[in-house]
């Protein structure tokens, strides 16, 4: 360990050459977001992270990430800044988080905490992520309970809710760019939307019918394994 590193306790990794690899990895992630392929990066030398440090990092994320998009903050903090994890591991966890039930933010906290420190790590990361928001939203909730009928409160929350509609719509359109452009995917999107949003079919029913159908349409095939149901998509 060099003197320079000792003077910078936050820097967990030494050689300047690693920066290049990091930049390449970042570019790979950007590409992966567009192309949809797997990003690869040099494996990091993972040093043991203390539970307290883990808690601190997730606590800071939990208190500074506003308005969704927690995943971007997570990557910035754990992959770029702390270098606790490489992009490949991060992306693999993100895929899993998006596939399984639960919020991306909490699923990723659990996944990353587990990777870094096992069971206690997962618990500590989840708590760090959720604690600040819980305290603040509960404080707002109590304020709301006492002021719920004042016109000012109703008007502020009405404006916030309307802005939130804009935010979720924009987020959905951005995440779904790829799906909305392909006829097969678009019909599945529309089917799900109509079934849940218009006909108000219960979510259990919808998931258990459209889910298997959708996976079956994308079932592994020998010929078009890489590109999904190429015939249907055209």
């Amino acid at each position: 360990m060099t003197n320079e590193m000792l003077s910078r306790p936050e820097a967990h990794e030494g050689p300047a050459g690693a920066e290049l690899t990091r930049a390449e990895a970042a570019a790979a992630v950007e590409r992966a977001a567009i192309v949809g392929d797997e990003a690869s990066a040099e494996p990091l030398e993972v040093r043991p992270v203390t539970l307290w440090r883990l808690f601190q990092v997730f606590f800071v994320l939990g208190i500074t990430s506003f308005g969704g998009g927690v995943v971007a903050y997570l990557r910035q903090a754990l992959v770029v800044k702390q270098r606790w994890m490489d992009d490949e591991t991060f992306l693999s966890g993100l895929e899993l988080s998006q596939t399984l039930p639960g919020l991306n933010a909490t699923n990723m906290s659990i996944y990353m905490g587990e990777r870094l420190r096992g069971v206690p790590g997962a618990i500590v990361a989840l708590l760090g992520m959720c604690l600040p928001g819980t305290v603040i939203v509960m404080a707002l909730g109590m304020l709301y309970a006492s002021q719920a009928r004042t016109p000012a409160m109703v008007m502020v929350l009405g404006g916030v809710g309307a802005a939130a509609v804009g935010l979720t719509l924009a987020t959905t359109l951005q995440i779904g760019k790829k799906q909305l452009a392909k006829p097969l995917d678009l019909s599945l999107v529309a089917l799900t939307f109509v079934v849940i949003g218009v006909f108000r079919v219960s979510l259990v029913t919808a998931l258990l019918t459209i889910g298997p159908l959708s996976i079956w349409l994308y079932r592994p095939r020998k010929r078009a394994a890489v590109d999904g149901p190429a015939g249907a998509a055209k």
Partner: peptide, 9 residues
Amino acid sequence: GLAPLTIGL
């Protein structure tokens, strides 16, 4: 398969 379902939801 789940991606379009997610967007629809």
